[in-house]
Design a binder for these strands. Structure first.
Lengths: 110, 110
DNA sequence: GTCGTATACCTAGTAACGTTAGGTATAGTA
DNA sequence: TACTATACCTAACGTTACTAGGTATACGAC
């Protein structure tokens, strides 16, 4: 479960350049060193949602093999959203770090 | 949205010692430097779920003020779960880091 | 040649989760 | 007396990711 960070992850995977859905899955897997191995049923609805939201632009293309693919690229809006999500992520992960460090421990709890 | 990390966050807040629900909220807020300011309606169901799952033990206590509180503490199982969640978190945040760094960029995409 | 696998797309249904929006009650303070 | 802070709770809702299917083509093995 990537709960809520999936949009960010997909946007990040497309930051380097356009890709089609299947390639996005592999790119995410590669960049995360195998940690995120997402099923297609997870990715495709996200791509559709992001496209509908104007964060991605998708267009059909035909590969050399003759196979049809839907290639997605970040829109301006999507780039801005990625920056925002990234900033949020920094704050989020710092806050979690603070949770683990514990701050000053409360004396004599209970 | 803390989507899926909430259990970990609550467990982490209780790692320093037992606390009642309202105090957990404040502890989380303090340790996260204000980043996580959770409404009660978010925390209480989590506490109940964690207790039902055997990760927390709750008991009613009466404060000096005479106010009744439900004080939760980590069980052995809860401690183990926290360790596991923390390890998961490390891997997760590393993977997200990898996503942002991008690994080696794919040449000439689409 | 055909059989299996990898590629490539899709959607309906489900379950979990966090939030919203309420409700109750007591202690302390203005 | 009234308001605020403390302290607990739950029902309903919307979002989200996952499961589990389905379709179709390219390619290599046999």
């Amino acid at each position: 479960m990537l709960k809520g960070h999936l949009d960010m992850i997909v946007l990040a995977a497309l930051a380097a350049g356009p890709a089609h859905g299947y390639a996005v899955i592999e790119e995410i897997k590669r960049r995360s060193a195998g940690a995120f191995d997402l099923p297609e049923g997870t990715i495709y609805p996200v791509l559709h949602r992001l496209e509908e939201g104007g964060l991605l632009a998708g267009r059909w293309m035909t590969a050399d093999s003759g196979r049809r693919r839907r290639v997605y690229s970040l829109t301006r809006h999507g780039e801005r959203e990625l920056s925002a999500q990234r900033a949020l992520w920094e704050r989020f992960s710092e806050a979690v770090g603070g949770l683990f460090k514990g701050g000053r421990p409360s004396k004599n709890p209970a």
